[in-house]
Computed example of a mutant assay.
Amino acid sequence: MMLKRLGAFLLIVAFGFATVQSATAQDDDASHTVTIDVEDITELSIENSVELTFESANGADALSLLTPTSGESKFASATGGTNYDIQTNRDGVKLNVDVTSREGDLGSGGNNSMMEELGLLVKAQTGNSQEDVKLTELGSSSISGGELDSEFGPLSATDLNLTYEGVVTEEFTSNAGSANKLTVKYTVTGN
């Protein structure tokens, strides 16, 4: 009887070893693929609004890039600026600037438009250089814009300079309480 029990015990032990050994012999590796997909990313931020204050008749010091047309004369000049940040992983992009709206005595049409009496230029430090774009021109009531930089990127830059330079003629008058504002929009376009 003892021999039967010993035989049963050995059979159970042998079966246990076979089970444990087969479990450890199994291959339990697994793998999968991770796909990396980076979209085109472009972020542009401008820190503050800019205020130009024309305080004195400093026409002799007025800015040379804003040359009067049609016999207009420069009466006063002013400058102001802020900073901007740009990050892009794109290549060959462009930074454009446009005036998208105007308020107060700079409003469109009628007798309230002082646009012909204002010359405004923006200078932007860009990824490649310092570029200038005329937004308004003395003697013209039209607004314009243009390309500040082209074919740049990838780029990550902070605290780049945006400088506005303006001149007005002696004909520029402002109604009391009139908020003379231009909305200037910056856009990144391209590849």
Score class of each variant (00 low, 15 high):
D105R: 04
D159T: 13
E43L: 12
T67P: 04
S77E: 11
T187H: 03
A62S: 10
V50C: 04
T183N: 15
I36K: 11
L160S: 08
G166M: 08
S144E: 13
N48M: 09
G177T: 08
V13T: 14
T82G: 02
D105N: 15
L6A: 12
A18W: 08
L52S: 07
S49Y: 07
T82Q: 01
S150G: 12
E147H: 01
A179F: 01
V184C: 11
D105S: 11
E116S: 15
V188T: 05
E116R: 13
L138I: 06
G153P: 00
E43N: 14
I86R: 01
P68T: 09
D91L: 02
G145I: 09
Q87V: 12
G81A: 12
T24G: 07
I86K: 01
T42G: 05
D159M: 05
S64T: 13
E51I: 12
L6P: 00
K123Q: 14
L120T: 00
T163H: 04
L6G: 06
T163R: 03
N89Q: 09
T24R: 04
S178I: 06
T100L: 02
T136E: 00
S144H: 04
Q21H: 11
T35N: 15
D37K: 12
Q87W: 04
A78W: 06
A157K: 14
F75G: 05
T24S: 10
A8G: 09
S22K: 12
E39P: 12
A60D: 09
E103M: 06
L160K: 12
L155M: 07
E147L: 14
E137K: 12
T189W: 01
T136Q: 11
T189V: 02
D28C: 11
T79F: 07
T187N: 09
D149P: 11
G166A: 14
Y186S: 08
E170R: 13
M115D: 06
G127V: 02
T163I: 07
N111L: 14
S31M: 03
L160A: 07
A8Q: 11
M1Q: 01
S22L: 12
T67G: 04
N58F: 04
T79M: 08
R5Y: 13
I86H: 08
D61H: 06
F9D: 05
Y186P: 02
N128R: 10
T169C: 08
V38S: 12
T163V: 07
E39M: 06
E151R: 00
D27F: 08
V133W: 01
A176I: 08
F172V: 03
Q130W: 10
L106W: 10
N58C: 04
T35I: 13
G153E: 04
E72T: 10
V50F: 02
G59Q: 08
D29V: 02
D105A: 13
A25W: 02
T35Y: 14
L11P: 00
L6R: 09
N96Y: 03
R102P: 00
R102F: 02
E51F: 00
S49E: 15
I46G: 01
N180S: 11
L11V: 07
T158S: 13
G153W: 01
S178Q: 10
I36M: 10
G153F: 03
A23D: 11
S144A: 15
M1T: 05
